[in-house]
Design a protein around this nucleic acid. Sequence first.
DNA 1: CTCTCAACCAATTCCGAATTGGTCGAATCT
DNA 2: AGATTCGACCAATTCGGAATTGGTTGAGAG
Lengths: 233, 233
Amino acid sequence: MLAIDEAGSNRSIVTQLRAYLAQATLPEDGRLPPERDLSAALGVTRTELRKALGTLEAEGQIWRHVGKGTFMGNRPMDTLSDIAALSKRTNPAELMRARMIIEPEIARAAALTATPMHLAELRMCQARTREAATWRQYETWDTRLHRTVAEATQNTPLLGLFDMLNALRRAVTWGRLRSNPIKPEPDHHSFTEHETIIAAIENRDMNGAAAAMRTHLQSVERNLLARQSSEAD
Amino acid sequence: MLAIDEAGSNRSIVTQLRAYLAQATLPEDGRLPPERDLSAALGVTRTELRKALGTLEAEGQIWRHVGKGTFMGNRPMDTLSDIAALSKRTNPAELMRARMIIEPEIARAAALTATPMHLAELRMCQARTREAATWRQYETWDTRLHRTVAEATQNTPLLGLFDMLNALRRAVTWGRLRSNPIKPEPDHHSFTEHETIIAAIENRDMNGAAAAMRTHLQSVERNLLARQSSEAD
DNA sequence: CTCTCAACCAATTCCGAATTGGTCGAATCT
DNA sequence: AGATTCGACCAATTCGGAATTGGTTGAGAG
């Protein structure tokens, strides 16, 4: 057994594999044939093929996963954008900081791109929150108001980020107390704060919208720290 | 047919249903029995039960979905935070706008919270991009550099948002051309721009970090528009 | 003409079989 | 004896059809 010969034969299989990959037309997702098929096609045993594949994987040319297959390109990162997994690694305070960073910028963008239709819906949501007879109803319309701000950016990825943040919020504060069965008081801080946000967006005041949203979130945070119940904003 | 009698009988079924929901111990996810079972259990026809369920749904007490079932509580929003679905509704330009809104704020937060460990990793990534022999290698380290900025915020939700944005970027520009097999030139604009970003974070210059990231993304966008290939940044 | 109800429809879930990369031990070769 | 190979087996994933479930329709009862 000579190491040189071994390395040589191994490298030749790697070369053969590289040639195949350059020539073959592989499907959209970059998946290449299963090891069993590929080894037969190349006329080598599976063990030999796997050695070559191991080399290419070490080089970062391909990535593999049990049950999935072997693919070209860089390995996609583990989907940290999974709500359930994320919610277990974070806490309300951290989440609040993230909202404080993201949502003002969304409001800023919304001030630039909001259409009359969006403004009308914002007004309607605002009215509905005032009319709400229960906290559940208030929450429904409050959520929709904030989402309409995100929709007003007319930017699909941004809306997706907002939805993710919202889903996280629900997941994190899932075991929330419902110790406030009564409806929100007419002088709840959110009413005037929402008003300020909507007005700024109406006036195309980008800085104002961002500032108003930041102020609003700070109020929510203060309320959240004061009493654990009702994280509604 | 008397409307009063109809309404009365309907209301009674709704009441009966409310009583059942208050008494029944339903599973963790708030799902209640299928309509066929429930109608039999309550001794009413399915049509009658569905009328009552429709009333409760209109009130927002329950929500229903074909194939899933009937559940208590507010309807969860459609998971727009799904990468695959999201990538089909957007385009590179929109995605770029979203990055331009979000990532500078991430850099700003990172300037405040980055640890020496993060700074060291940023420096290492920067060095690796300069040493890169191929575009693929460059892309790997460039991606890691940007992700390290997000990690430096030490905010899990924020990191999740960044990962989502990144996943979207890959999905949207998936059918990308590889017309540039050569390695990046030593005077590639990203090198100095990355340097500016890292320096600002080192100096705890929040505004500077945000501005530098914005400038960098504008360069990337300009490059993206100029030539379709290599959307690397 | 209205209301009811069984059959049917489409979306979703469920579950077992097939697929696939990873691993181990016996067979094989030197 | 020692290293290598190769088939069988393992666990993760996907695939496909059957079952389930909310929604709809059209014939028939009242």
